[in-house]
Design a protein around this nucleic acid. Structure first.
Lengths: 191, 191
DNA sequence: CCTGTTTTGTAACGATCATTACATTAAGGA
DNA sequence: TCCTTAATGTAATGATCGTTACAAAACAGG
């Protein structure tokens, strides 16, 4: 019998997530969130309690979304090398004019050091990504694309770390040429 | 004939830099800066104009300081491998309980995307670091420590990117075991 | 010992921060 | 249609933001 909501919670989380993604947690004001979501202040606070809680749910949204993308690494159809390259190329985000980077990387730097809950979320995410890389590498070794001598887990961690490093450098890079060559180097490591 | 200052400008910059390092630019308030520097508000603003200008000078301070440390990479006395390992190990900062990370990495994520001046400063810094790595690798190749087949510049960029990635992950890492193994992997790449 | 100049301390500025109080609106169940 | 209940819109909350105005203080040159 209550008055029904006129907005979709997931749609709001998506929009709010993009706002946090663009400017970071601190630099995004409640006013920004109101504008990004299209809701009134009351509705936002009624459904999400606080800016901090809203951010956590946005981050969670981003994490699951990113994991979906990382599923291509475990996809048994595609070539592991192509899948890995795809993940790295998307980090350069050549289509986006603003340098958004990655919400995971951004959050690790901005909040993980001081917020244990956030740190835990990110750590779990890194674990999952590392696992996905590991599987892709093992698959590549089985079908002969990659060097069978390599330690899959160690190489996966190397890729994961390189990915984060690319995310950092792409924030200040004017051209992505050097980073593209880094991706080539990283993939050559696996052969 | 004017009243002389009772503080040392460089000492203040060092203290202020640490404050920015610990909490980031936005999260550090003018009040924090006053407390960190020990000066009065007036003196701070009189000598450094604004929080933004103060940050730029602090960052500059950090950059030149870091470059001094990176000089070990060009040191012809020490072993290139040992020097490189030293740089990476220090990134894990096992002595510091709080996860400070690296002011360069933190700033790249927090500000470089929106502040072109800052982005330029960081880019120049990355260029210098890459150059230092390149020299160390070349030297290692000459004395037989490293694989002579490697492309020095590309490998240097790989190291630089890995370093940034380690800085990101160390923010959320509970133990540094995985990252230590990554360092081993990175150095094995050079052989 | 003045005088001039700059630093220093205090207090306040307007703006914006995240959050909330409250009245209004709207819809389902009776 | 009326009543209940929750969503909504508006306005304001105290706190804190970065910055500044101003008077008092302190030193160097005369």
């Amino acid at each position: 019998m209550p008055r029904p909501r006129i907005f979709d919670e997931d749609r709001v989380l998506q929009d709010v997530m993009k706002a946090f993604w663009r400017k970071g947690y601190l630099a995004t004001s409640a006013e920004d969130l109101v504008k990004a979501s299209g809701l009134g202040r009351s509705s936002l606070y009624n459904t999400f309690s606080s800016k901090a809680a809203l951010f956590e749910r946005s981050l969670d949204c981003y994490l699951t979304c990113t994991r979906q993308v990382a599923k291509t690494l475990s996809d048994t159809e595609a070539s592991p090398e192509a899948a890995i390259r795809e993940v790295f190329i998307s980090a350069l985000e050549p289509e986006v004019p603003e340098r958004l980077g990655c919400l995971v990387t951004n959050t690790a730097i901005e909040l993980a050091g001081q917020n244990e809950r956030i740190a835990k979320m990110l750590q779990r995410h890194f674990d999952l990504l590392r696992q996905a890389f590991t599987e892709a590498i093992k698959r590549g070794q089985r079908n002969g694309e990659f060097n069978a001598e390599l330690d899959p887990t160690g190489s996966a961690e190397l890729l994961l770390t390189l990915l984060q490093g690319i995310r950092v450098q792409s924030k200040s890079a004017t051209d992505s040429l050097i980073l593209e060559r880094t991706i080539d180097q990283a993939l050559r490591l696996l052969h």
